[in-house]
Lab assay of single mutants.
Amino acid sequence: MTVLPKDIPGDSLKVTVGTANGKPGDTVTVPVTFADVAKMKNVGTCNFYLGYDASLLEVVSVDAGPIVKNAAVNFSSSASNGTISFLFLDNTITDELITADGVFANIKFKLKSVTAKTTTPVTFKDGGAFGDGTMSKIASVTKTNGSVTIDP
């Protein structure tokens, strides 16, 4: 049996954390987006972790974005102690894959008090994996961190 590389060099799934701005007490939304989904033969499963400074940001909610089908079954998240974990699994293993680019999740943060303008990162942590529509590992994932700026 011969195994051929399935990824064209330079191609990767792009996962990007967005940015937001606000004043202390505001609730802002930071999107997590996927790009080049079709090039990577869709997404059938993924789990990953984001870190944030809990002294500056309070997670209000984490909701599935419009590219997630049947989110009540296929999407899960949790947030505590400065870490947000995400889990997606197409429970049907074929019919509810992520097949389009767009917003995977929206994180709502309540901004805490600061004395001066502060930009705090929302960054990928170690761990996690992504699988394509056949549940094979997506070897190349380009992750881009985001941030939230609090301006009193």
Rank of each mutant, 00 (worst) to 15 (best):
T2A: 13
T2P: 10
V3F: 13
V3T: 09
P5L: 07
P5D: 08
P5N: 08
K6T: 10
D7A: 08
D7C: 09
I8M: 09
I8E: 13
I8R: 09
I8S: 11
P9A: 09
P9C: 13
P9R: 10
P9G: 14
P9F: 12
G10F: 10
G10A: 11
G10R: 14
D11F: 13
D11S: 13
D11V: 12
K14M: 10
K14A: 13
V15K: 06
T16P: 12
T16K: 14
V17L: 13
G18R: 10
G18P: 10
G18T: 13
T19W: 14
T19S: 10
T19K: 11
A20R: 11
A20P: 12
A20K: 07
N21E: 11
N21Y: 11
G22H: 13
G22K: 10
G22L: 07
K23Y: 13
K23H: 09
P24M: 06
P24V: 11
G25S: 09
G25P: 06
G25K: 10
G25I: 13
D26R: 12
D26M: 09
D26N: 11
D26C: 13
T27D: 09
V28H: 09
T29P: 12
T29Y: 11
T29A: 13
V30F: 12
V30I: 13
V30S: 09
V32P: 01
V32I: 13
V32Y: 06
T33A: 14
F34P: 02
F34E: 03
F34N: 09
F34Y: 09
A35I: 11
A35S: 10
A35G: 14
A35N: 10
D36C: 05
V37N: 12
V37K: 07
A38V: 13
A38Q: 11
K39N: 13
K39D: 11
K39A: 12
K39H: 11
M40G: 09
K41E: 08
K41M: 14
N42F: 15
N42E: 15
N42P: 04
N42K: 11
N42A: 14
V43K: 02
V43D: 04
G44I: 13
G44Y: 00
G44L: 14
T45R: 00
T45Y: 00
C46W: 05
C46D: 03
C46P: 01
C46S: 03
C46K: 00
N47H: 02
N47M: 01
F48M: 07
F48S: 06
F48Y: 13
F48W: 07
F48N: 05
Y49L: 00
Y49F: 05
Y49Q: 00
Y49E: 02
Y49K: 00
G51W: 08
G51R: 13
G51T: 08
D53L: 09
D53F: 10
A54C: 08
A54Q: 12
A54F: 13
A54R: 13
A54N: 12
S55C: 12
S55T: 12
S55F: 15
S55D: 14
S55G: 13
L56S: 12
L57S: 10
L57R: 05
E58A: 10
E58S: 10
E58C: 10
V59D: 07
V60R: 10
S61F: 11
S61Q: 14
A64P: 10
G65R: 12
P66D: 13
P66S: 12
I67E: 11
V68D: 10
V68N: 07
K69F: 11
N70W: 04
N70L: 04
N70V: 10
N70I: 04
A72Y: 13
V73G: 02
V73T: 07
V73P: 11
V73E: 14
N74D: 06
F75L: 12
F75Y: 05
S76C: 07
S76Y: 09
S78L: 15
S80H: 09
S80L: 14
N81K: 15
N81E: 15
N81A: 15
G82R: 15
G82K: 15
G82P: 15
S85C: 01
F86M: 02
F86K: 03
F86I: 07
F86H: 02
L87A: 00
F88Y: 04
F88K: 00
L89I: 03
L89T: 00
L89P: 02
D90P: 02
D90K: 02
N91L: 04
N91G: 01
T92W: 03
T92M: 04
I93F: 15
I93E: 02
T94E: 01
T94R: 02
D95A: 06
D95V: 03
D95P: 02
E96I: 00
L97F: 00
L97D: 01
L97W: 15
I98V: 04
I98H: 00
T99G: 07
T99W: 05
T99Y: 12
A100H: 09
D101S: 14
G102V: 12
G102P: 02
G102K: 01
V103F: 06
V103A: 10
V103E: 00
V103T: 05
A105D: 00
A105K: 01
A105E: 07
A105T: 13
N106Q: 08
I107Q: 00
K108W: 02
K108F: 05
K108S: 06
F109S: 03
F109A: 01
F109Y: 04
F109R: 02
K110A: 04
K110Y: 02
K110W: 00
K110T: 03
L111C: 06
L111W: 09
L111V: 07
S113W: 06
S113L: 07
S113Q: 05
V114L: 07
T115M: 05
T115K: 07
A116S: 07
A116F: 05
A116L: 05
K117R: 06
T118I: 05
T119S: 09
T119H: 07
T120Y: 04
P121F: 03
V122S: 06
T123R: 14
F124T: 02
F124L: 04
F124G: 01
K125Q: 02
K125Y: 07
K125D: 02
D126E: 14
D126T: 15
D126V: 15
D126H: 15
G127K: 15
G127Q: 04
G127H: 04
G128P: 01
F130P: 02
F130C: 04
G131D: 03
G131T: 01
D132R: 03
D132K: 02
G133E: 04
T134D: 01
M135K: 03
M135W: 01
S136H: 08
K137G: 00
K137E: 03
K137M: 00
I138G: 03
I138C: 09
A139G: 07
A139I: 04
S140R: 13
V141Q: 04
V141D: 03
V141K: 02
K143F: 01
K143D: 00
K143A: 00
T144Q: 06
T144F: 04
T144I: 07
N145P: 05
N145L: 05
S147H: 04
S147Y: 04
V148T: 06
V148P: 01
V148L: 07
T149L: 15
T149K: 14
I150C: 15
I150N: 14
I150T: 14
D151L: 15
D151Y: 15
